[in-house]
Amino acid sequence: MKLQKIVMTACMLLATSAAMATPATDGLFSRYKAQGAAGFDAARGDKAWHKETQGEDGQTMSCSTCHGKDLGKEGKHHKTGKVIAPMAPSVNKDRFTDAKKIEKWFKRNCNDVLARECTAQEKGDYLKFLLDK
């Protein structure tokens, strides 16, 4: 009986840790470290995600402008209105499974929101923050 409980807990722990990282993100984390990033911090990622920057026409924008306030729900492109699948890997299993795709969107979206590319440190923090969702 006791053994069963231990096994169950172990399985649940495994399952939660599996949801928090993918082979793709593991690879990216080590790449970012090799590029000079230190440890990664979800809280720092959270703050940067919600930081408002100056967008077009005097409006401010942040990642939430397109991805929405609830990362478990769909977002909407601020110009074209195209639906963006939820960012949270807990509801969207396809998220963060393709390193090339992650890097592609970091490049584009950092340029659009921050008007520059993100550093390895910033990208790792964003990922850490998002993987918990």
Binding site: E56, K79, K100, K104, K107, R108, N109, N111, D112
Partner: peptide, 12 residues
């Protein structure tokens, strides 16, 4: 594509 109508749409 890096400035595709105001958006970065870069591709490999």
């Amino acid at each position: 594509l890096a400035d595709h109508f105001g958006e970065d749409a870069s591709l490999d």
